[in-house]
Design a protein around this nucleic acid. Sequence first.
DNA 1: ACTTTACTGAACAAGGTGTCTGTAAATGAA
DNA 2: TTCATTTACAGACACCTTGTTCAGTAAAGT
Lengths: 198, 198
Amino acid sequence: MAEDRRTRRSRRALGTALVELVLERGFTALTVEDITERADVARATFYAHCRDKEDLFARVTADLLTGLAARLEPVVADSEVGFTGKPVLEMLRHAREERDQYRIVLRGEGDGKPLQMFVDALARATAEEFRARAERNAVQPRIDPELLARVWVGEQIAVLRWWVEQDVPSLPAEEVVRMLLDLALHGRYWASGFESRA
Amino acid sequence: MAEDRRTRRSRRALGTALVELVLERGFTALTVEDITERADVARATFYAHCRDKEDLFARVTADLLTGLAARLEPVVADSEVGFTGKPVLEMLRHAREERDQYRIVLRGEGDGKPLQMFVDALARATAEEFRARAERNAVQPRIDPELLARVWVGEQIAVLRWWVEQDVPSLPAEEVVRMLLDLALHGRYWASGFESRA
DNA sequence: ACTTTACTGAACAAGGTGTCTGTAAATGAA
DNA sequence: TTCATTTACAGACACCTTGTTCAGTAAAGT
C-alpha cells in the first residue's frame, strides 16, 4: 500500500533537477528534456508525474510555502504579546536552510507567479494580524491595514532577497531582524544625514 | 532622411499590442503571431524590427525606465536640502500616466527581468545618494547604505504596486508619499496597537 | 515621376511539446 | 519464490512556434 520507491525517487530527482537548472539558466530557458536528463529519468516519465514544466515548478514552490507556513504557525500563535519580529527571524532561518528555493522564488522566476503568491500570502496574513491586533486593543487604525502590511512585507522581501543573494552573509539573521524592527518601528538608522527637513 | 512613417507606425503598434496582450494573458503565453495580429502587421514585419519577443519587451520596459529617469533627474538635482520624498511623488505621477506598463513590470512579467532592472536601478541610485549625503554631512553611516537603500526601495515598490493595481485609487499620490515618509522616517502609523514591547 | 524603403504572404527547417505505443524491470503481496 | 501490479523506458507521432528567407507589392520621400 505504501508508495513505490521509484515514484518517490523520480519525483525528488525531478524537483531537485529543476531547482538546480533554474538557478543555472533560468526557468524559461529550460526544456523538459533538460530536466529529465539532469534527473536521470526518461522524458515520458516526466509526463507521468507532471502536466508540464509549470506544474512541476508550482509543486516545488507550493511545498516551500507550506513549509514556511508550518514553521511560522507556532511562532505567530506564541507572539500575542507584541510586535517582536519573531516571525521574521523564523523566515530568515527557513530561508537559510532552503536558500536555493528562496533565491528562485525571490528572483521572480516563472513569470513572477510564485513570488506573487509568496508576497500575497505574507501580506494577507500580516494584514489580518494587524486588524485583529487593532481590534483587540480597541483602537482605530490610522491607515489601511492592507497598505501597512504591504509596506512591511515589502521591507521583509527586500531584505530577504538582499540577504539570500549574498555570497557570504555579512550579517547574522538576528542582526538583520533588529535592524528591520528599528527601521520599521522607529525609523532609526536613517539618522545618518538622511533626515527630512521637518 | 527622416524616418519613414511606416516604421514608426509599426513599432508603436507592436509595442502597444504587446502591452495590451501581456496585461490580458501574460508574457509567456503570447506568440509572436498573437502580437502581430493585434498590431495589424505581418509576422515578417515583426522580425524586421525585433530579434524576438523578449527584444520587443526589453525595448518597451527600457523606454519606461529612461522615461522615469528623465523625470527624476531634475527633481533629484533640486532636492539637495533634505529627504523630502519628492522623487517618490514624481514616480507615482509617472506611474499614474503609464499605469499599464508599470503594472506589467511590477507583476514581474518576462521572468522578472524588467522588475529586477527597475529595482536595481532605483536601489543603486538611492544607495549612491545615501553615501553622498552621509559624506557631505561628515557622518559615518550606522548601516550599509546598500541595505538601507534596498529596504527603502522595497517599501516604494510595494506601495507602488498596491497603488497601481487598485481599480479606483483610494489615496491620492500626495497622501501616499506623506504616509510613506512618516512610516520610513519616524515609524508613525504603527501606533495603532502594533507597537513593540520595548 | 522615380528611387528608395518598408510591408506582405508564403514557404522553410529546426526544435520543443504533449500523447501514445509496446516492452522491460522493479516492487509489494501472497 | 512466485505472481500480479505498478512504474520506467525508448521511440514514434502530429502539432505548434520559432526565426529566416525571398520575390512581389505598396507607399513613403525628394
